[in-house]
């Protein structure tokens, strides 16, 4: 993906620039980078395993069964729940959402699904808790979950014309 290339180019340029300015500081920065990474690695690995299992169980077929045939707020709630527990990379999620729309899902449901998918992270919670603590993590995810219904409602009105 293009954004990855940009990320690498920017990082390499900054690293080279930093090294030419001050070797010692660059070494220190690399050490900090490694320490920060090593510190969170166990949580990362666990989350990635959880995501793998969830995605295998909640595949596009199952998701479209859950929200494709439902309508109204019940469907919205289900879509929001499915979005909240799964974590699908955007380049998979958006085509999936487009496909679900074609299969008869409403804009409101898809709005809820996309919104909770991105903002609510049940499986990434272990990483979030490590940095922000339990209370804040839970509060942030609940608020984002509730906010997704507002998003769903407005998208339903604006895009779906309900």
């Amino acid at each position: 993906m293009l954004s990855n290339y940009i990320l690498y180019i920017v990082t390499i340029l900054l690293l080279v620039f930093s090294y030419s300015k001050d070797k010692e500081k660059t070494k220190k920065a690399s050490k900090k980078a490694w320490k920060a990474f090593e510190n969170i690695l166990p949580q990362f690995l666990g989350v990635i395993m959880l995501v793998g299992m969830l995605l295998a169980v909640f595949n596009a077929e199952l998701i479209s069964k859950i929200i494709g045939t439902q309508s109204g707020w019940f469907g919205v709630i289900l879509s929001a729940l499915v979005g909240a527990i799964t974590l699908i990379p955007g380049f998979v999620a958006f085509p999936t959402a487009a496909m679900l729309l074609q299969n008869g899902a409403g804009y409101m449901q898809i709005g809820a699904f996309v919104s909770t998918l991105m903002m609510v992270g049940v499986v990434t919670a272990p990483v979030e808790i490590k940095y922000f603590g339990k209370r804040l993590t839970i509060a942030r995810n609940i608020l984002a979950f509730l906010f997704s219904f507002i998003v769903a409602f407005i998208i339903g009105k604006v895009v779906g014309g309900i």
Partner: peptide
């Protein structure tokens, strides 16, 4: 899927941490 996500992590995470170190 896990293997795929690991690859994604291996790709995106190193520059993010180097940037935060800098």
């Amino acid at each position: 899927v896990t293997g795929y996500s690991l690859k994604e992590m291996a790709l995106v995470i190193p520059p993010i941490f180097i940037l935060l170190g800098l």
